[in-house]
Design a protein around this nucleic acid. Structure first.
Lengths: 304, 304
DNA sequence: GAGAATTATGAAGTTGTCTCATTTTCAGCG
DNA sequence: CGCTGAAAATGAGACAACTTCATAATTCTC
């Protein structure tokens, strides 16, 4: 028994119009075609789907069972086709994001909260599990956006700049380094460094400060959550280097001191990477715009 | 965009096997056919459903959306096909019943309670609304069984005898007719007769007693529920003629008297009518057997 | 970078579905 | 009762769509 949607559409049409003749019109085929079709269908089903004792003919009890499935299934199919219409005109789509940068949850979550209200038909999600191979996941359409500060020249991938930030050193107010004006790589050589649990290559403090100077911290402790890093810093269990926007809450808190690192002019730029074909979609443009706006709010706190 | 199940099967197969090649095998067609097919599908969808940057190819985000629908829909379709297998071998079906005889609920409901446990895949229902045109509804497959005591010689309809019963006169113990041994048509000429609200032709008391004698009761009051008829009888608001099995509960109750009617030998036979094609089905045979068994229980109460 | 594996493409063939023309069936009605 | 018209069934042929076959173009693997 090999059903096709054609059969379900036929069943439904005959039921709705109440006869072969009219059903044929509504399906834009001939009555003959329908007659042949249901004959074939009944052969496959091995039973009569229609009652011929009456004219026009109506569904039999077996036919009614098929009708119930037909109505449910066709509704799904039609919803799918409508969804594809929306995909084509850009009002629907998928926005699955992965981030190489832990601290970005700070601004990303508010952005997504705004976004999902504006684009109810876009399926939004964060996929932390794919962060390790983020760019590859983007190419394979496992995700649609990668938040990164390492743009690469890749064909088919577009990097939209979001905002600039500086990595900032943070320590407890009572910490010996609190008196220094500027933090150098060597200052960290005898420190416990608190970082996110990611590859060193993804950590600003290694890539921009320690690696160039060939310095290794006395100890590195990996911590998942920003709040916990700050907690450990405050209690003198280590020091950290975090993006400046993270510091907005604690910059003027008496327990902490923040210091510029390196020459104090280290700047990084955050990007949203997506496949170039998606870059032109309206919801994608809106997403990057929202991300920039949210970042500005955070930057605005700097001068407080 | 004109989707067919073939497309959904293809989408699912490619996803499950992880590539065109293997999917083609599992669908028993060539890889070339699949390649052509998805090309046509993508043309219709107006977008890419697969990511070709990788080999083997995988679903794109739009393709994933289609996959979700495909999985739901195909599950329904496969369940339907399985259901039809059961319909064919007779372990599934529909048993929609209508009754011309109100009192039959007494034994029918216990029967259906047994039945539905034994035949979980048979859809059981009672359709009181179709009682007026019961036999026509049976022919048109609006119902599958008619409970009736008027067998007719109809082509394609089989009448299975269930049990015999006698219509019995019932009145309040204090009623003037309580002293009579036998009730005749004339006895009812000055009585209020309580009946079910159906056509006179379907009422035993008219068809077998009053009509032949050309007698009309003083008054006829139509009451829906058996319990209410008995209540009204007990309070002296009228008399009734009911099937003997209905009386099992009240026969020896001090408020009531029951009397034979006519010559006291009036017998009626109850039948289950179904379409002859259904009569051979195992669940239908089981239903009539259950009905007979249940009736015997009631008849057994007679001699209590 | 060669070979294997995977997908794409073009042409030809086959299958299945539709249309057209006609017949059969059935309900309604004089 | 037979006529009449509408509805459904049937058979033959046309046609489109899907499939296969053969082969080219990619991409992956070692």
């Amino acid at each position: 028994m090999h059903l096709e949607l054609r059969h379900l559409r036929t069943i439904r049409a005959i039921h709705e119009t109440g006869g072969l003749q009219k059903a044929a019109e509504s399906l834009h085929i001939t009555q003959s075609a329908l007659s042949h079709q249901i004959k074939g269908l009944e052969d496959q089903a091995g039973m009569e789907l229609f009652v011929r004792r009456t004219k026009p003919m109506r569904l039999s009890s077996a036919g009614m069972r098929m009708l119930r499935v037909a109505e449910r299934v066709l509704e799904e199919i039609e919803a799918l086709e409508a969804e594809f219409d929306h995909l084509r005109d850009g009002s629907a789509g998928r926005l699955h994001i992965t981030l190489e940068c832990h601290a970005c949850y700070d601004w990303l979550l508010p952005v997504l909260e705004h976004f999902r209200r504006a684009w109810t038909e876009v399926d939004v999600d964060i996929r932390p599990g794919l962060a390790f191979n983020a760019m590859e996941a983007l190419e394979r359409e496992q995700v649609d956006v990668v938040i990164t500060s390492d743009p690469a020249d890749m064909p088919g991938i577009t990097f939209a700049p979001l905002f600039d930030y500086s990595p900032v050193f943070v320590a407890a107010a009572s910490h010996p380094l609190a008196s220094k004006k500027l933090i150098t790589a060597e200052d960290l050589a005898d420190q416990t460094l608190l970082t996110y649990p990611v590859d060193r290559a993804k950590l600003d403090v290694f890539k921009m400060l320690l690696a160039p100077a060939g310095v290794e911290p006395a100890q590195q402790r990996k911590v998942e959550l920003t709040e916990v890093i700050l907690l450990l810093v405050a209690s003198g269990r280590g020091v950290a280097v975090l993006p400046d926007w993270v510091m907005r809450e604690v910059r003027y808190h008496p327990d902490y001191v923040t210091k510029p690192i390196g020459d104090g002019k280290l700047k990084r730029r955050m990007y949203a990477a997506c496949r170039s074909e998606d870059a032109v979609k309206p919801f994608m443009a809106h997403f990057t715009k929202l991300a920039r706006t949210e970042a500005v709010k955070l930057q605005g706190n700097k001068g407080r």
